[in-house]
Design a protein around this nucleic acid. Sequence first.
DNA 1: CAAATTATTATGTATGCACATAATAACATT
DNA 2: AATGTTATTATGTGCATACATAATAATTTG
Lengths: 233, 233
Amino acid sequence: MKTPSFRNWQSVQDEVLRRIHAREWKPGELIPNEADLAVEFGCARSTVNRALRALAASGLLDRRRKAGTRVAAQPVAKATLDIAMIRHEVEERGAKYGYQRIERVNIVPPLRVSGAMRTGVNDPLLHIRALHLANDAPYALEDRWINTAVAPDADAEEFQTLSANEWLLKHAPYTHGEIAFSAGQATAQDGAILGVAVNSALFTIDRLTWDNDASVTKVRLLFTPGYQLRTIL
Amino acid sequence: MKTPSFRNWQSVQDEVLRRIHAREWKPGELIPNEADLAVEFGCARSTVNRALRALAASGLLDRRRKAGTRVAAQPVAKATLDIAMIRHEVEERGAKYGYQRIERVNIVPPLRVSGAMRTGVNDPLLHIRALHLANDAPYALEDRWINTAVAPDADAEEFQTLSANEWLLKHAPYTHGEIAFSAGQATAQDGAILGVAVNSALFTIDRLTWDNDASVTKVRLLFTPGYQLRTIL
DNA sequence: CAAATTATTATGTATGCACATAATAACATT
DNA sequence: AATGTTATTATGTGCATACATAATAATTTG
């Protein structure tokens, strides 16, 4: 039985996936090492390494120096979500994007906000509430705090026609962040703005971004009922 | 001004990130090409390529043959979620996992299910409803359809003590899938099982997996109020 | 036998070179 | 000026070699 030749990393990776999928290589078991696979596939060892690297990053393989490479015993599926600017999201759905500022104040935030953002309890932050629209209908309600110690230019921005997110993307780079997805019930106030009944289920995204050790912005987005975030596995 | 030497791909990548972050290389602009960066950094061109590759995959850079490499004009943040088995999710939160089968029948599904799974309109599927528990309290309600043409051994499984997801992970590999996150309101029936009021907001996950062109399983998970899915940016 | 040390192994990476490929720029033709 | 062809360029990749590193296995010591 002559093994077909796999002369590039993509076909090596496809064959590896095929063997995993066909359970020729079972979860938890060691697979042949790079050097042996290179001989078998008729390619260079670094080509095998290149093929296996992404599979390890995606959680399908578990690789250890000396111990070798195993098919992950408990594969954890990974779903990657693109967190796009809301304008793009709306426009990609073929709708017309709109934005309305509801409120903009410079105030001392509640403790849960200053605590999360690690700002001083008496430090004022810029608080902005705004509504995003799709075809003139409410799409998402935004409640945002901006740390003007990190983004001082925000103090001069009205955010009347430009959303804070679009402004921040241009003026306040972040190094990392945290994001959470949940379901919450509409309050009377939020429900009135979004045009939905009290206690409607709203898909909720909470996000906090950091520039190294300093928080940049903390935002809560409430999406109108029917909103779905989709991706592929 | 002597440029420090970056002798490995990680430090090259860190420096590239620093320049992007500091807006030395602005969004939308071309950055020096690989060969020039290699000279500047005092390393091999393939080391630069190695460093830039992941940044392109993560959306920070936009790379084109001949045109060169640009800082992405509109960076799209990517959030990667681990879709773990519910048992692991519960146990990682320090709780005791529990499982209760509610129902198991072999029936012809509604059209929206056979349509989504691309099975015949008169083909019976295995329908399983089950409750996942954390510390003996409801955690998630599962409503699942299994395509027994693809996973015929499921016909012999009772799913009395073992959840369908755990069984499928061992017996029915999939090649790809689709997943959607949303917020829905609890019906009277589901609310009663989950022990929550009608119209409570429930975080909802819909998932459909495929083995090449054949659907494997379609599942809807309803999580009790307070559930959050978190990750980092 | 247990603990410490050494040897070995498989992955991780850097390099230089060569070739491949997509795609832009330059040039030629009508 | 518009269209077609060719040349050039920057990324993408394969290869062979060498070295680095983590970590397991084997050997040595008490």
